[in-house]
Design a protein around this nucleic acid. Sequence first.
DNA 1: CATGAATGAGTATTCATTCAT
DNA 2: CATGAATGAATACTCATTCAT
Lengths: 223, 223, 223, 223
Amino acid sequence: MRTHVPPTDPSTEPAGPSAEPARRTQAERRARAERALLAAAARLVAEHGSAGVTLARVGEEAGFSRGLASHYFGSKGALLTRLQEEALAEAMAAATPERSGAGAVEELCAFTRAACLDGVRHPTDLGRAFVVLGAEALAGSSELTDAVARLDARMRGWVAEVIRQGAADGEIRPEVDPDAAATTVVALLKGLIVQAATAPGALGLEHATAEAQRWIRLALTTP
Amino acid sequence: MRTHVPPTDPSTEPAGPSAEPARRTQAERRARAERALLAAAARLVAEHGSAGVTLARVGEEAGFSRGLASHYFGSKGALLTRLQEEALAEAMAAATPERSGAGAVEELCAFTRAACLDGVRHPTDLGRAFVVLGAEALAGSSELTDAVARLDARMRGWVAEVIRQGAADGEIRPEVDPDAAATTVVALLKGLIVQAATAPGALGLEHATAEAQRWIRLALTTP
Amino acid sequence: MRTHVPPTDPSTEPAGPSAEPARRTQAERRARAERALLAAAARLVAEHGSAGVTLARVGEEAGFSRGLASHYFGSKGALLTRLQEEALAEAMAAATPERSGAGAVEELCAFTRAACLDGVRHPTDLGRAFVVLGAEALAGSSELTDAVARLDARMRGWVAEVIRQGAADGEIRPEVDPDAAATTVVALLKGLIVQAATAPGALGLEHATAEAQRWIRLALTTP
Amino acid sequence: MRTHVPPTDPSTEPAGPSAEPARRTQAERRARAERALLAAAARLVAEHGSAGVTLARVGEEAGFSRGLASHYFGSKGALLTRLQEEALAEAMAAATPERSGAGAVEELCAFTRAACLDGVRHPTDLGRAFVVLGAEALAGSSELTDAVARLDARMRGWVAEVIRQGAADGEIRPEVDPDAAATTVVALLKGLIVQAATAPGALGLEHATAEAQRWIRLALTTP
DNA sequence: CATGAATGAGTATTCATTCAT
DNA sequence: CATGAATGAATACTCATTCAT
């Protein structure tokens, strides 16, 4: 069971005698269990909402005891916060991609396609959990509400910046207000995603995404 | 103790200075209490989400006893279902307004303005409760999920119909796919509302709504 | 089961029709249950200490369900606080008796006898619970610590006042410092009670009480 | 890894600049850690009561891991028992001091002063833990209750013995019942300590101690 | 020797629901 | 009709304890 990691420098240990080979594996066990718990939590939240999740079920779903989730995260709220942070990091990365080098309008269209189609078609548990948590956070201001608000703001900021660059390049009409347009682009995205989430399959998502891209092109380039 | 007042129609209760102001029919009292309970439930759901609502609080918030909500609606689920139905009826009415006689594009712009600005600025408890319940219903298929899906479909249908009429009138370009465009219009609406709900005040909603209207006009009429 | 209490004026009810005969019995039921719960709690605290008491046991010990104590008092802390208040009221009454009209020294001796002998020999559950809670409160400042401190101060104040009156009457030597003497009297009482509580039966409480009375007489009257 | 240093006496560890300062015997390390754990436990018990102590906190408070207290003492009960024994030994030593050679009355007065003033002003964690554990043990007979009872008995025995010697020397009146007087002396001590512990600072402890000494002198020597 | 990962029992607390008045 | 007393199931949370490293 002992892993074959060479007994490298334990780095921060206070250098007492016999302090390092076990450490690694303990830490691994812990990290592995924590990941399993978070994955289980994401799955359960995505399927049943945060109210439908119990700490006991998270533990068992992850293949551990009923008490482990409590033991690790301290409280249900802390678990959800943690889950949210993980999801937020993922979402932030997705919300503000690297510029691909293409033109501004193409960039935005690609972003739209990625967010709408890929996000909806190949959803991760974490992504779905984030949508669910974000939706639940609509009622009553919570930390999550703020986090979602910051995410939205960041996404709008990214879009506005792309638009500004496009305007500077002459690709986008200078009359376009970058902030208002960014809000509208993000609205399109979120609105499509919400509709798709509500009625999976009942929507011509392909068509709708193409239409949304057409609107974006028109709105940013039509004289 | 039962007074023998004939059971006059309870639906029009604010009948001005009527004949017998003191005594109410049992049916009237019942209907009045039920409305008060539903209003209280809407307020609580809007503020705390459905998980943050207890039957006891509903009763007390409405000015009655802790047990009355249970007594009337039988169970918490039944109360929420009932609330949902009320909210759905209101939302349905708002989602498919009477045609005003204006042109199709103007109609859609007016609809956008009404939904975004009025809905966000002068929210009703029932409307907010509906948004919250709908958001919660994203996870796990429930009756409410289906109801929201039906509402979305109906809203899209109404928009598509307006677009078809506009196309028939020559006001809207015939190449426009009414269904895809309707999905996009609804996406714009919902996306704006969600952003506004998440970050109240932090959004230039006025500007964004104007921009959305510009997009709709462009998309439907640009050659 | 209906009690034969005449349907007297419900006094504060808002005078709506049909509002009073049931009320009385409900209130009685509630008060009766509450008393039973508090009595059970006092017994359990006296026997096992506050850490050895569970809300479930309180409910069952009182002949009700496991959840009732929680339901009434809200939390274990609230139950203990309530218990403490009841006990404090009893203790306060015992700590500051009405003057009997006897001389000051006799009064203090009688007080000593009452507190030591009667209190130890015929203990009430509430009294024992108070001693236990007070003892537990030695560690970590709590509301109870303060309450006990106030009780002590009040008892000292009463004793000091009796001493002052005795000094004014010429019965007690004027050199006696009333406050220091009061502290010492209370110390005698508490020290005897604690010893008796720790070793029930193993102490010649009768003799010790007589000795304490002798000391008090000597200290207050010896030239 | 085990060094072959002879197992020198671990009881005198602060041995000044010794020969091998770096390496410790296992036994020494063990003893040192155990003392640290007990000291941490004493501090925590004194502050939070025994219910407020967890084995994990004891370990961390002592600067070790969460599991060490468990590892050493086996169970929480064993730790508390051990703590109690340590405290009892200290208390026993304090309760039955060596005779100083002074007269009996002076001895008792000095004892009173030491217990009340020094004990209250310069409390050790162990001493405070003992008081707390003893107080908790009032409810429900435990080993600790018995230990405290034995301690009380021993203290009374010591006092009674001093009184008997004083009587034999003619310094104390022969009519004084040594056992009853001893109980009263101990009551004075404990009562003062308890009052001081309950209301730290709010008590004229200096005056009260002087008064107690006056009482003792009077009671033992007044004809 | 020492750490800390994992377990599971115990308990407080909340709340829908039932039922007596 | 209406109240609120009482129940009991569900669940979060704490911690002593065991065990692998």
